[in-house]
Nucleic acid binder design. Structure first.
Lengths: 139, 139
DNA sequence: CTTGCATTGTACTAATTGTATCATTGTATA
DNA sequence: TATACAATGATACAATTAGTACAATGCAAG
């Protein structure tokens, strides 16, 4: 078993759902390089025991991360950080698709208590970071 | 689970609304140190049964305390005395969650072939629409 | 190579908890 | 008394987490 330790810090009284906190921290640790592509995450049951929560809560977090292509969960095998960044296989360039995505994102953020300015600021920052990263990689 | 006992003394003939008495006594016990930040309060139903009152009355009291930032009520979880010490940690974690949310959204949009300017434009548009809707509803 | 079993994630359901909405009650006041 | 309004109650709903059973995978024993 080569699963990483995955140290998570949950706040049970923050008003944020456990599964949301897990998703956030895994993505954060991936962005920080603490987690690397190919790393195996703890099993849903192992992490559940460590965090003292039900393993379905972990499964829910993993499912969200899987849907976001951040990790790959495989029944009977385990869960791994996705090896290659998601392929850009855009074919439906329809504005409606992007609109729906944006609405889902904004709704979820607002549901969790974030204000519209906060949301806008975060998106601007993230897009700017990616833009800079692209320019740097071109050199 | 670890909910405090929360001994309240209600006077049903004082002319003071039940929910007002609950609010006052919770605040009083917090000031006295009987209740500590992080403590979990009884569920609305448990406290309602103990006090022989409808649980909506408890919910109303909890809602007022929540609006006063004295407690944090969380659907599906419970209600907790607000943690004062780690405002920094709380903020940091919230930022992390929003960041993760934004990253998921942007990743998915890019995976579908949308460009960064397109994504930014869509979010700006949606936020602007909501802002206008809010202002209109205020009139 | 096959079989059995342990490990791992999945699906579905149940339980727990707060929320929203409207109805009822009771009381003050015109 | 009639009416208006605040307090409380009833009911249905939504969000989160937990429980249970199952399916896929891999590995080791035979």
């Amino acid at each position: 078993m080569t699963a990483k330790k995955l140290t998570l810090n949950l706040d049970f009284h923050s008003g944020l759902p456990i599964y949301t906190q897990i998703v956030a921290q895994v993505q954060s640790q991936l962005a920080n390089g603490v987690l690397q592509p190919g790393d195996q995450l703890p099993t849903v049951r192992a992490l559940a025991e460590e965090l003292r929560v039900n393993f379905n809560t972990i499964a829910r977090a993993y499912r969200l991360l899987d849907e976001a292509r951040v990790i790959s969960t495989q029944q009977g095998r385990g869960t791994y950080i996705t090896e290659i960044p998601p392929p850009k296989v855009g074919k439906k360039m329809k504005a409606e698709v992007l609109l729906a995505l944006a609405e889902r994102f904004i709704n979820e953020a607002q549901r969790l208590g974030f204000s519209e300015p906060e949301i806008g600021q975060m998106v601007r920052t993230q897009l700017q970071l990616r833009k800079e990263a692209e320019e740097k990689s071109k050199e």
